[in-house]
Design a protein around this nucleic acid. Sequence first.
RNA 1: CGGGGCGUAGCGUAGCCCGGUAGCGCGCCUGCUUUGGGAGCAGGAGGUCCCCGGUUCGAAUCCGGGCGCCCCGACCA
Length: 503
Amino acid sequence: MANEKALTTHAESFSEWYNEVVLRAELADYSPVRGCMVIRPYGFRLWELMRDRLDLRFRETGHQNAYFPLFIPQSFLAREAQHVEGFAKEAAIVTHTRLMSVGEGENATLVPDPASKLEEPLIVRPTSETIIYEMFSKWVQSYRDLPLLYNQWANVVRWEMRTRLFLRTTEFLWQEGHTAHVSEAEAEEETLRMLGVYREFMEGWLAMPVVTGRKSESEKFAGALRTYTCEAMMQDNKALQNGTSHNLGQNFAKQFALKFASEAGTEEYAWNTSWGVSTRMVGGLVMTHGDDKGLVLPPKIAPIQVVIVPIFRKPQEGVEVLSKAQELSAALAAAGVRAHVDARDNLTPGAKYYEWELKGVPLRLEVGPKDIAKQQVVLVSRVQAEGEERKQFLPEAEALATMGRRLDDYQALLLERARARRDANTYRGVDSYDRFREILDGAGGFVYTGWCGSAECEAKVKDDVKATLRCLPFEEFRSPEAPATCIVCGQPSTAEAIWAKAY
RNA sequence: CGGGGCGUAGCGUAGCCCGGUAGCGCGCCUGCUUUGGGAGCAGGAGGUCCCCGGUUCGAAUCCGGGCGCCCCGACCA
């Protein structure tokens, strides 16, 4: 309603389209702090719904929530060598604890009080492995104390050079799971279990198909033994790393003295895992399903699943129509459907349609005097399945009784569409480097090839086409016939790899 | 940090080249009429023209310097 200018289309500029949708749908806004965004109520509700579902799944898989400090002593970060290297260049550092005024009148300003300088700087957490494993080491003595299965919902800060709403912000919200186990096998099992929880959530709730697999050495988490990932394809054919799960081995346990007495009586270092998903998923959701009219939300995660728009001419009709709308809304709510009556009287129905379409509400019910007379409602779906009528005139009782099923169908339709799009932009059996470059320099997509395992070949691809090795896919995603040679150097392939340009 | 673009009312913009009362659309407020795809009419409110300095009788406009934002790269969830 605030802006009648047409959205920039996907075809004109995908990134401008993305920004406009996020802003106009009121998911988020730029803040006075560079690189930081404000998540507005509609966007935050999306995050809350994601959080609720994941939190339930974490609990069901045996995890407990806890909370660790925002600040990490600088020395902690320094202990694990790769970890430092990974995060040192994007740290927010607290060095003082007081401000003081200097100057007079117009020139007066605040500066850090030198007397308040901290002996050891504190780092605003970019991730919490160090401080969590430091605490774990206090709590674990025996194998009987393991496993520790923790999760925290938190904000973290990474001072990125270039930010984008939801996809990469200086501060972002996430969850980070941290666990400690008696054996590598148990840690590996946990790492893969949580990757599975992510995948099931992304596909089942976000309707976002993902490829799962292992990261290469150069792409893995700083300090991990192995990193596993869920990679999704956005509508511009770029990859979005949507969630990762790390087997940290004993790297952190050794630096933070996370030891225990084993059943055999020997002293052992624990095996850790960590795994996380962030508000980036909101951006992924936008770029997976959105179209030139705006957001398209999967019902399971839509703050409003059904919006009811009352239509009337005369005031006495209004009373009747509004009460019918409320009645429908209550009946839907009782059936577990998130319904909303748009009772605003300063907007015409048409204006409301545009707004709710922009905001991605899956289904819309229109109710007017004619409908009440016929005991019917008008149902309009934000996106149509093949051959489906845009507007359907349904008996009221039928509409109510079938709404849950319709939402499920809609959810399934979005997943199916996204999967079909991904598959259509997936390339296998590419065996010449020229063809490989042609695809990645052109329309883009996921390209499956052989890979010799060398970082040099990865670096060359990055240099040549700015694409990265997204993952070494798990078996179910691999090509029926394993590629024999590395796409870059032609040496024998050691693993099939997926390449793509990424966010 | 390199390349490009842009800062004028809540939003989108015109005016800038060629200095002279800051304009338009949307939104907002009031009233009446309206409401099945972005309502109409009438009245009204709302501006440090990004900031600092310079030139000038006079600067949104010209000159110098700064800051901010967006896009494309390098870095990353």
